[in-house]
Nucleic acid binder design. Structure first.
Length: 425
RNA sequence: GUGGGUGUAGCUCAGCUGGUAGAGCCCUGGAUUGUGAUUCCAGUCGUCGCGGGUUCGAGUCCCGUCUCCCACCCCA
């Protein structure tokens, strides 16, 4: 035997036993997004490296040490997308979707970050994202959050909590940044090397530090909310009012700053304590300056992203019932002639009853072994074809989930009999 | 990148102080000459993560390396 080739670290295979759960979750998200009037957008997983540097920010961890960046055969620097927003903004500008238009969009797919794998954190992971362009008021901020709340409800997820903050405009954010640098610089001695480094590179991130000895310092730091400009403050108040009216419970977290540079004004996170150290299940916010920064006209924008792996874990914990994806009918056919006939019969059944899944036994086997497979397939009904049935142009019909007596049905009556049995079931 | 744990059959795991591997599940066949999910019987499945070292002898001890898990960091 040759040496095994293994998969890539942090990139997992999704086995057939797990895909029904994924399909269920993705289906709920798609349906709800479409129901709110959002349309799907699909863009490539590879973009020019420059795109992410300019949008996410040069000094963020993502850009500095987590990107899968490589040169293609032309010597161009390309990067596997570490997040989705940048590519969507690029493509929306490039295709004219933002030219005197508003857009409500969603998309889903794999993202790539070179991190050390951990619970809820992988090198290839999947997101479901929503992005909105051209809406300035807090009503759309509220709608985005209401949409996520509905998603939790339909997925059966309970242990999540909404945290809100406002980062203000770029100008008020810069003003706050300066105050913060001043404050922490005065306490320089109590910072470790890493945080001292951050002080100049990305001071807002200091507020996120989990170091226990940092906590008193952070608690006493100037609050971003106090530096907020009036327009942002009004917007933020408007959002809170709408959420309260809609019955959405939230808490204000003045230290919620987000790790990507492009966020402005509203930011929010749905967090949980059920997933180990990775608490954010869904996060997002406004990025009013990004479109312009990437070469488009000034356009207000807001979006959020859900981590599907984390979402799936939450759905598992909630034990939400998931449709199994079994066939409804399993054709048992013993003998070569019966096997041939079963294949044809099954095609007729599929044409007449497209709403049902119909699996035909393949690979032969005794009645006993074929019934075992029928049971394992999860089918509710077995259609039986042996030499006797073949000779009489009949089939046996057995309900595998109830103790009812097996029927014998003529081929021309089979469609009606199966339909009857499955609908009364 | 740093730290802790881990790796034995397809899966879940046992294997005491070194003497060339075992259980349950799964799968296959049978008990029942054409009927599953229960029961009973039988059978298949392993370069013991990989490489090196110590030893007469290594799944077991030592070193290296990789995987997976968890935490730091960071984030969805």
């Amino acid at each position: 035997m040759n040496k095994k080739i293994t998969g890539i670290r942090g990139m997992s295979d999704l086995l057939p036993d797990e895909t029904p759960l994924w399909q269920f979750v993705e289906g709920v998200l798609r349906r709800i997004a479409a129901g709110y009037g959002y349309r799907e957008f699909r863009v490539p997983v590879v973009e020019r490296s420059e795109l992410f540097k300019r949008s996410i920010g040069e000094v963020t961890d993502i850009v500095e040490k987590e990107m899968y960046t490589f040169e293609d055969r032309n010597g161009e620097s390309l990067t596997l997308r570490p997040e989705g927003t940048a590519g969507i903004v690029r493509a929306a500008i490039e295709n004219g979707l933002l030219h005197n238009q508003k857009q409500k969009l969603w998309y889903t797919g794999p993202m790539f970050r070179y991190e050390k794998p951990q619970k809820g954190r992988y090198r290839q992971f999947h997101q479901f994202d929503v992005e909105v362009f051209g809406y300035d008021g807090p009503d759309i901020d509220a709608e985005l959050i209401l949409m996520t709340a509905r998603m939790w409800q339909e997925l059966g997820i309970k242990d999540v909590e909404l945290q809100l903050n406002s980062l203000g405009t770029p100008a008020s954010r810069t003003a706050y940044r300066d105050r913060l640098v001043e404050y922490f610089a005065a306490h320089r001695d109590s910072l470790d090397d890493e945080n001292r480094d951050r002080l100049h590179r990305n001071p807002l991130r200091l507020l996120d530090s989990k170091l226990p000895e940092m906590q008193p310092l952070i608690a006493a730091a100037p609050q971003l909310t106090d530096s907020l400009d009036t327009v942002s403050a009004e917007h933020f108040a408007g959002l809170q009012e709408l959420l309260t009216a809609a019955g959405v419970v939230f808490s204000l977290n003045p230290r919620l700053v987000r790790g990507l540079d492009y966020y402005t004004r509203t930011v929010f996170e749905w967090v949980t304590d059920k997933l180990g150290a990775q608490g954010a299940v869904c996060a997002g916010g406004r990025y009013d300056g990004l479109v312009e920064q990437l070469g488009g006209r000034p356009t207000p924008a807001i979006g959020w992203a859900m981590g599907l792996e984390r979402l799936i874990e939450m759905v598992k914990l909630a034990e939400t019932p998931v449709p199994a994806g079994n066939p409804d009918v399993y054709l048992v056919a013993v003998g070569e002639a019966a096997g041939r006939q079963a294949l044809l019969l099954a095609e007729d059944l599929r044409t007449a009853l497209p709403q049902y899944g119909i699996e035909v036994n393949a690979g032969g086997g005794s009645f006993k072994s074929q019934f075992k497979r029928a049971d394992k397939s999860g089918a509710r009904l077995a259609v039986i074809l042996g030499a006797d049935e073949l000779a009489n142009e009949q089939a046996g019909l057995k309900n595998l989930r109830h103790e009812t007596e097996q029927q014998t049905v003529a081929w021309q009556d089979l469609i009606a009999a199966i339909d009857g049995e499955l609908t009364t079931d």
